[in-house]
């Protein structure tokens, strides 16, 4: 690793790992697993970015 990950990179990595685990645990068929993993990944990222923007006014 060249250096510490940025906030966004950390969040994306976190979302990717957890989504893949959720997809594999939560569904049986490969197509359903992929769909569920993609869906939860999108939700992780969207909610994360939304909470980030909500906290923006209090950051200074």
């Amino acid at each position: 690793m060249r250096g510490p990950l940025t906030h966004l990179q950390s969040m994306l990595l976190f979302a990717l790992i957890i989504s893949l685990a959720f997809g594999t645990l939560g569904r049986r068929r490969p197509a359903e697993r992929l769909k569920y993993a993609a869906w939860s990944f999108c939700l992780f990222v969207i909610v994360g970015v939304a909470i980030g923007w909500l906290m923006f006014p209090f950051s200074r």
Partner: peptide
């Protein structure tokens, strides 16, 4: 499949 996914996910984290 689930065993491998859990092992890799927890290990990576």
């Amino acid at each position: 499949g689930r065993a491998l996914a859990v092992f890799l996910a927890v290990g990576a984290l």
